[in-house]
Amino acid sequence: MVDTKVTLSGIVLDNPVIPASGTFGYGKEFAALYDINCLGTFSFKGTTREARFGNPTPRIAECNAGMINAVGLQNPGVEAVIARELPVMKEFFHKPVMANVSGFSVEDYAYTCALLDKEEQVGWLEVNISCPNVHNGGMSFGVDPRAAAEVTAAVKAVTTKPVYMKLSPNVTDIVSIARACEEAGADGISLINTLLGMRIDLRTKKPVIANKMGGFSGSAILPVALRMVYQVYEAVQIPVIGMGGVSSAEDVIEMMLAGATAVEVGAANLVNPYACRDIIADLPRVMEQYRINNLTEIIGGAHHG
């Protein structure tokens, strides 16, 4: 019998598989399809201080082995999430959930996190300082170590829950950003968010996405994500949640060998709504195939010896 359990800042997960924010809503579309209590946890839709519609459409584009999105953090706002989404979620999901938070100022982040801190259902805060979709937005925090540290410290000051800083890959030195977050008190690092990309329609000769650019995700980005998880694992002492292009149990194990304690699955959920359930079901078989008895023991395995 293999052991798929991992521990994320003191909370034990049955397995390391976590649907990534923005690909799983607040869980209900998937709970209608399967019992989502099989998940390690899930990271709910990026939540901001105020309600947002997001960017104009079209905001989705097909790519080779991936997709671009420029949704732009559509969400009903933190008060509505607490009043409407969390009570509904409690009915079908009985594990601590990861609250994903975005903001447009340090005060926004602190305000939203302070409210979510009071919610018993929330196990961790995942703070997105990397969303490339919003003008004036998260991007500026995620590309500057000082700004990233400032957000980290502001959030840590208003919560006792573990804080995972979700980093942008659109930087020259991911390690310096991760270190700055750790020094400012982050309990963990989530990476990577989407890579800034674009597509152009040959018929209209204009960008496919109304916002021109968007975040590239999907299986194509797995090697980039693995490399960054590997680098950050070596640079920090705090746990790393790895994500980017993961769509199979093999990918989960590869991400853990690079240094991830838990692994998020994003775009794959949009193509196969059962992706996370299937990966979790497949994990024991793949572990046996590679003679892995305990997933915790393989975290960062690619670095040793």
Binding site: G22, T23, F24, N69, V71, V208, N269, L270
Partner: peptide
């Protein structure tokens, strides 16, 4: 509209209506 998932998860195809998003 251009869609990501087709089942409500990604919010890719949202529009504003008089009855809300």
């Amino acid at each position: 509209e251009r869609m990501g998932c087709g089942f409500g998860a990604c919010m890719g195809c949202s529009c504003e209506t008089k009855y809300g998003n």
